[in-house]
Write a protein that binds this DNA or RNA. Sequence first.
DNA 1: GAGTCAATTGTGAGCGCTAACAACATGGCG
DNA 2: CGCCATGTTGTTAGCGCTCACAATTGACTC
Lengths: 336, 336
Amino acid sequence: MTNTSGRLPRLEDVAERAGVSHQTVSRVINDHPNVSKGTRERVEAAIAELGYRRNTAARSLVTRRSQTIGVLASELAQYGPANTLLGVEQAARDAGYFVSIAALRTVSREAILDAVRHFLDQSVDGIVVIVPHSETLLALAEVNPGVPVVAVGSLGNATVGGAMVDQKRGAELAVRHLVEQGHRRIGHLAGPQDWIDGVARAEGWSAALRVAGLEDDLLVVGDWSAGSGYDIGRKLAGERTATALFVGNDQMALGLLRAFNEAGVRVPGDVSVVGFDDQPESGYFTPPLTTVRQDFEELGRRCMDLMLGGIEDGNNVGTTVVEPELVIRRSTSAPA
Amino acid sequence: MTNTSGRLPRLEDVAERAGVSHQTVSRVINDHPNVSKGTRERVEAAIAELGYRRNTAARSLVTRRSQTIGVLASELAQYGPANTLLGVEQAARDAGYFVSIAALRTVSREAILDAVRHFLDQSVDGIVVIVPHSETLLALAEVNPGVPVVAVGSLGNATVGGAMVDQKRGAELAVRHLVEQGHRRIGHLAGPQDWIDGVARAEGWSAALRVAGLEDDLLVVGDWSAGSGYDIGRKLAGERTATALFVGNDQMALGLLRAFNEAGVRVPGDVSVVGFDDQPESGYFTPPLTTVRQDFEELGRRCMDLMLGGIEDGNNVGTTVVEPELVIRRSTSAPA
DNA sequence: GAGTCAATTGTGAGCGCTAACAACATGGCG
DNA sequence: CGCCATGTTGTTAGCGCTCACAATTGACTC
């Protein structure tokens, strides 16, 4: 890192040192063929000696590519979105992309458009959307960002690609497990119905029950939080209509378990409970929670795969589905 | 948005439309004084009509500023880091900055240097570090990124600024609460001692006990996970030396509660438990957890404040401390 | 030995913007 | 009325890079 002058070395400096033209250095950097071995080595040596790093701004200016992917996310502090982001980030960095984020505090049309504009200002090469509200896709369809868009949790449409966990299949796994244990009255504590996942899991629950020839009339809706699970749990503890509950996520299940514990409803003795997500803590609930595992990081990686495909192929993004898995713990058993 | 040609409008196009020079348009965009009201209005109209957006790459190339803050983070799926990131993102976007992230899968010197290089390639204007390992700062001191660095959870040193929650004070609040309830044997289930917070909380616990004239000999170390809390809880359930435990974070407390429940140790009847963090779920543990609340988002915002100060003032970053707060729930009571 | 081709290297222009400076009004003052 | 201060606008250069094309070399063919 011999830094003679004050400023950072540029292509020209490297070229001079290696005794070639700036263009040849550019070729070496960009792995062009048609550079002789000797020249390449000399240039690489010069690069190392000067500690040269390519200036991204200059490159972006001429290539019109920023090597940056924008990730539009809400609920980033939640287990699912956070891990999806991790998957995206990993795949992106491995592919030589930068990851820029915009977090939505409130999910509204205006906030989404604002974030998209933010990304366009940065001229991102693509946008990954981790905003699990149905509304999002509508708002997104409205703008035409001019770059590939991949939405998590949706199978997308003509303009937007998507990667999702097969929610319906997950719900089916949960319900079938309960049915196999002998349950006949299986309720569902659903997530908000303006969330894609909330709807999908409820539909999966309903479909699986119908397949088993059972009623799908025991549906309550929460807001994903432990608090709402608790409130609903207190109510349900009094009614006791179902012998088993399929809960939309692990946090609501936690609140539900807490309420049942307080009310003297034993789990799984009186009521079996299945969650969804398999957060790291779920195995340490009281009792340890049977739940449906989703591989969020894989989901994120798949998003980036789709994205890279879309960048290559004129913004046409495909779709992909990740399979969930049932994790059986101690919150489920045969009914009394 | 009348887009005549295929390409995006540039400064020159706006200038032509407004009947001024490109430089005058630049002045309007950058809020320079010395532009007459009439001209400014005409230019603004032209900008609106053409849907002009400034090209970030071109601007960066000449200003040598990218308007981007790099956030270097590990454990991004955890409650604390994720919320800190949210705070940083909010403050950054409000200040007109982009936020680029690099997540560390493993915390090693090499991984950190790699991420820093990644950011330098992007020529970020500053780096926020959310990596709670002591090791990090050492690695960071090694490189000289040439831009302000703000580290979360540390008060920094000559080259690195910092924003932190007053961990010692938090531990003190927890311990004092237990002491006031009459506990005399107060143990600590600490986090890993290569984490800044792990050490700080243990020190706070120890200091508060000494102030109260009590012994600080009951120390066990976990790894922050619910699993380690569970394992240690099973061991502790057999020993029963302490009447109260101050646990390094809420997740370990969850595992501990689970183990105590299994072993028939009542909380708070037999042992009182205090956690740290106050995650949204902590109020729904069995029993609801008394814990120390940290405002992570505020922490993130403070980081950005320091950062902006540093960018102004030749990379000199200050320090700031956020106060924690004790949240009393049902996992603590007077000893039997 | 002239002609052809591929491989390698160099030259010039320009991406869109800002900084520095130049040029031109306008007006107050001696 | 000329002079300078002030406010406003225009001109020029160049940030560091890639692209398109030109130039050079050497090897191979007929």
